[in-house]
């Protein structure tokens, strides 16, 4: 199939950037979106042009690298699908596809479609961890976790840190990401010791790094490739508010 691709090109973080249009003659509906971009890059290289920089690693929907805005939707039009898992069957012959990097103050563009998502790492460093003994793994069944909680924690933990939630949000808020990361610990006994302060510290970091605040539009949930639920944001709010009162009564902590 023949495609017209409008791709964001930007040499460096400082470059202003612009859209460039390419015609890709023989894309196939059997390709994934990234394979289609590979084909575009081969074409560009054969024409002695600079290939389009885009991030990718696992190509199986688990690393969260393949961040890009496709026709105004993070990870393209399909629900709960990362760009690498997006099949070109979602497009038709002669389609025009607009491809842009994530846009948010806290996700500056490095090159073309690649953005710097280190802000997420910094949020994790502020509280996305548990303290525990090292050594050999303990017997799995020594700590009983109710099924419902375990399922909810696993869902939260399935967040791949791709940033689509920020990209989709009209406030460039990272609440869904932070909520998933807080939830995966808050629901489990291992996460309890740091419980009171985790949400507090991670949200403080999120605010400091220039992510907006959540106005519950729910766009993030719809666009999240892992289907992370807004219910986690409610839990984050709960944890944060609780944390606020804990610090109020126990200042010495």
């Amino acid at each position: 199939m023949k495609l017209t691709l409008k791709v964001w090109r930007q040499h460096s973080p400082k470059d202003k950037g612009r859209f460039e249009e390419y015609i890709l003659q023989n894309a196939s509906s059997d390709m994934t979106f990234l394979e289609m971009l590979d084909a575009l890059n081969e074409q560009l290289i054969s024409q002695d042009k600079d290939p389009v920089a885009f991030e990718h690693d696992c190509r199986e929907g688990i690393c969260g690298c393949c961040a890009m805005m496709i026709n105004g939707r993070p990870h393209g039009p399909n629900a709960e699908t990362t760009t690498c898992q997006l099949n070109m069957k979602a497009f038709k012959d002669n389609d025009t596809i607009v491809i842009e990097p994530w846009r948010a103050r806290s996700f500056p563009v490095i090159k073309d479609l690649v953005v710097d998502r280190q802000a997420f790492e910094k949020i994790m460093e502020a509280g996305g961890f548990v303290h525990m003994d090292t050594g050999s793994a303990p017997e799995a069944n020594t700590l009983a976790v109710p099924k419902g909680k375990a399922d909810e924690a696993i869902e939260a933990a399935s967040c791949i840190g791709c940033g689509a939630c920020v990209a989709a949000c009209k406030n460039a808020s990272a609440m869904l990401f932070v909520a998933a990361k807080v939830s995966q610990y808050a629901l489990l006994p291992q996460g309890k010791p740091e419980g009171g302060k985790r949400a507090w510290n991670m949200v403080a970091k999120m605010d400091e790094l220039g992510f907006g605040s959540c106005t519950n539009t729910g766009a993030c949930e719809v666009e999240c490739p892992k289907g992370i639920s807004l219910a986690h944001i409610a839990r984050l709010n709960r944890e944060f508010i609780k944390g606020g009162f804990i610090t109020l009564v126990a200042e010495e902590e």
């Binding site: 026709n71 939707r73 948010a104 220039g210 539009t217 719809v222």
Partner: peptide
């Protein structure tokens, strides 16, 4: 504050300028 923090927005085709659309909210 939220408007300020969304200072970089999508520039693509007119149709795709807004991240938050009727498809998701």
């Amino acid at each position: 504050q939220n408007q300020l923090l969304r200072d970089v927005n999508y520039t693509g085709n007119k149709r795709y300028q807004k991240s938050n659309t009727r498809e998701n909210s």
